[in-house]
Design a protein around this nucleic acid. Structure first.
Lengths: 143, 143
DNA sequence: TATTGTTATACTCTATAACTATA
DNA sequence: TATAGTTATAGAGTATAACAATA
């Protein structure tokens, strides 16, 4: 029942190809990080808080490109795992400030190593660091 | 309340950047196609059936990268709008074959023009056709 | 009035298992 | 037994509106 399918019309669509590539990379990330139970967005959040201790939720949400409202569940999940900590902001009674816990810092260090390794495998597929820079530069123009 | 945020840790992550670029492109597609009420996946489906009349649902689903189960609602939606038609396959009682209706063919022609224009705007942002080819080639390596 | 975190809600996308009818 | 379409379901992701506390 095999049949040659003409996919020319969709092969050239940038949005479609972005979706396919993103799905593929995301699925591979999920497998690589299944043991630690961390999603790509969760890792990004941890790395962001690590590099910017005391950041406010709305700032992290904006930096990650997720809605404030949707950030809540994400933060609650990581706080329940005692990986991050939310304290009241001293200068603004409405706001919070985020920090990694000791456990969060330790896990993030491990995740960083895993991520570096994962990223290296992608770079190898792309054909080297220059190709990766080229890809990132092109993606930036679309964002 | 502005604060300089260090996003170095996530700016270099291919998967993260893919997600951001894909979100940006899809949002812009949605706006551009809001009047006709067609999503990116729906357009891909229509173009695929147009170029491969008589294709079976499972083949279209596989070509688009969606699960067979999730393809059903998609096909039902387009059939309810009388854009596609599902007929029983003569050689296999289990299977169907897909075709565009006259209305579907007409709409797809309009969509093709809109899509070409939309794609051209993306290519312009990328910096030309060579850059687009470069991007697609890199994305293929990840898929 | 405006903003921050939050709740509630809805809609989409995706994945998996299981059913039915055919093969 | 295997496959095609389908149903059901659950889990994420995303978007919008609205609220309480605070600015």
């Amino acid at each position: 029942m095999a049949r040659r399918i003409n996919t020319a019309a969709i092969d050239g669509i940038i949005g479609y190809r972005l979706r396919r590539a993103q799905m593929a990379v995301f699925n591979r990330f999920s497998k690589a990080f299944a043991d630690v139970g961390i999603t790509p967005t969760e890792y990004s959040l941890l790395a962001l808080v690590r590099d910017n201790p005391g950041l406010r939720p709305s700032q992290v949400a904006a930096a990650l490109g997720v809605q404030r409202a949707n950030f809540v569940a994400l933060a609650v999940r990581l706080e329940a795992r005692t990986l991050i900590e939310r304290r009241s902001a001293v200068d603004d009674g409405r706001s919070h400030v985020l920090f990694l816990t000791a456990a969060g810092a330790e896990l993030t260090q491990t995740l960083q190593i895993m991520q570096d390794s994962f990223e290296a495998s992608l770079v190898a597929e792309l054909g080297g660091a220059e190709q990766r820079e080229r890809l990132l530069r092109l993606l930036t123009k679309l964002g």
